[in-house]
Design a protein around this nucleic acid. Structure first.
Lengths: 241, 241
DNA sequence: CTATAAAGGTGAGACGTCCAACAAGTCAAC
DNA sequence: GTTGACTTGTTGGACGTCTCACCTTTATAG
């Protein structure tokens, strides 16, 4: 096995340009050298440079104006919205809080009809059901229900207390690539509101997700009930023309 | 001399391939000809074909596997999540319902401190405040508060009853390019829950948005309160590596 | 029979070159 | 002064060619 990664040139070029921007060598709003000149300066062909510029434009780091020039974008690209897939562990850490986990239940169960549909299961296939409460700095933040087809996991699969995504990656070799999420809300849930220790005036934000792997196979069905007084979801919405 | 190169070749190639897929000439899951062969067949250079394939891959229409081949994607690309920016009018129409509007208030007012911050206003700048209830098939769905800096609009600016985005585009020549949205929830709002005609058990989903134009200038600050029993937000979440 | 090596096909990346489309400035003719 | 052709410099698009990395299949050695 020779993992002979050789980083493509255009990716190196991207890094070089980003570095120039971060180092202040290229100021926001400033015009880049012409493609011909810049290619010479970076010692790559114009096409390679263009490939890099194309991606940088996609990432909103530069703006290209036909017949005028290429410019460093002014605005700091904000992101980190939930259109990017990250784990609840990450979500908590981004708020500079310490994530914790309280395991409520784990074991194989027969799936509900919903699960069969969403996870594309066979008749007799069981699912690994995990119920947890995730805490931020010790106080309960979200009630999590996760379901994974049992046959995807080795017998001795041991759930660690960290991110489910990370755990799937490292323990089962499954890479989650994307998820289809649905955001709802519910006023009060007898059991869950109790566990999250929030009163009847505080609604719960529900994040219902189906996670898929690289070959579009449904892997993980999860329901998350958030305390709405401690969380909100931000989304970067882009106009599609 | 003037050959018919109005639209770029690679865009034509994209259309040709899409057409082949829609016509059933290329079945979902089927392998495309190799790049070399396909380029010959379509009478373009391999580079041009690759540019087309690159874009088709981005659009999730095909999947390329290094050393194996290029395949037509099986699954229908789901999207339409709120990571794509569309108006509430669109949102309602996508549910096959008839959008309606009830205008509650419109006029110029002094901005709040929040507005000044979010819309990047000057001290004495007024904002056009619009309060509306949007209905779907006649029944109230969402309570909308919109604020636009007054100086962006001509004196005689007349709000039509349609989409604010569309109105800004057509009447004021302002193109909204993207928005930063925040999703919250609230259990009950004395005034708004009343207007939306929903009881105290039904929480409201709040969509708070700041809309920006093509040059990243904040244009529109909006607060939308949705009846949570009639709406949920779907998001396509993608892993970023 | 199995395991390993070689071969061939595939997409990925890169280069040099050419022409077209676009924007802005220059300058002469009106 | 205004107009309109021309010039210059930019990004956009396209081509042909080459090498590399990756995967599958086949052939071969044991």
């Amino acid at each position: 096995m020779n993992y002979n990664y050789q980083t493509p040139r255009y990716l190196l070029v991207i890094d070089q340009i980003k570095e120039k921007i971060n180092d202040g060598e290229l100021e926001p709003g400033e015009r880049l050298p012409s493609e011909t000149d810049f290619a010479k300066e970076l010692r790559v062909s114009r096409n390679t440079l263009r490939e890099a510029l194309r991606i940088l434009e996609e990432e909103n780091i530069i703006i290209r104006k036909h017949g005028v020039g290429t410019f460093v974008n002014k605005k700091p690209v904000f992101s980190g919205g939930i259109e990017e897939l990250f784990s609840i562990t990450d979500m908590i850490q981004r708020e500079d809080k310490i994530p914790g986990t309280e395991l409520l239940f784990t074991g194989s169960v027969d799936p509900h009809s919903d699960d069969i549909k969403e996870l594309n299961l066979n008749e007799n296939e069981q699912v690994l059901l995990v119920k947890r409460v995730r805490t931020a700095d010790g106080s309960p933040l979200v009630y999590c229900i996760d379901k994974i087809p049992a046959n995807l996991l080795a017998k001795g699969y041991k759930l660690n207390e960290e991110s489910m995504l990370k755990s799937l990656q490292e323990k089962a070799g499954i890479t989650i690539s994307y998820a289809k999420a649905d955001i709802k809300t519910i006023g009060y849930h007898e059991e869950i509101s109790e566990i999250l220790n929030c009163d009847s005036d505080t609604p719960l934000l529900i994040l219902k997700q189906i996670h898929y792997d690289l070959s579009d196979k449904p892997i993980l069905y999860s329901l998350n009930f958030f305390r709405s007084d401690q969380i909100s979801f931000s989304v970067f919405r882009k106009r599609v023309f």
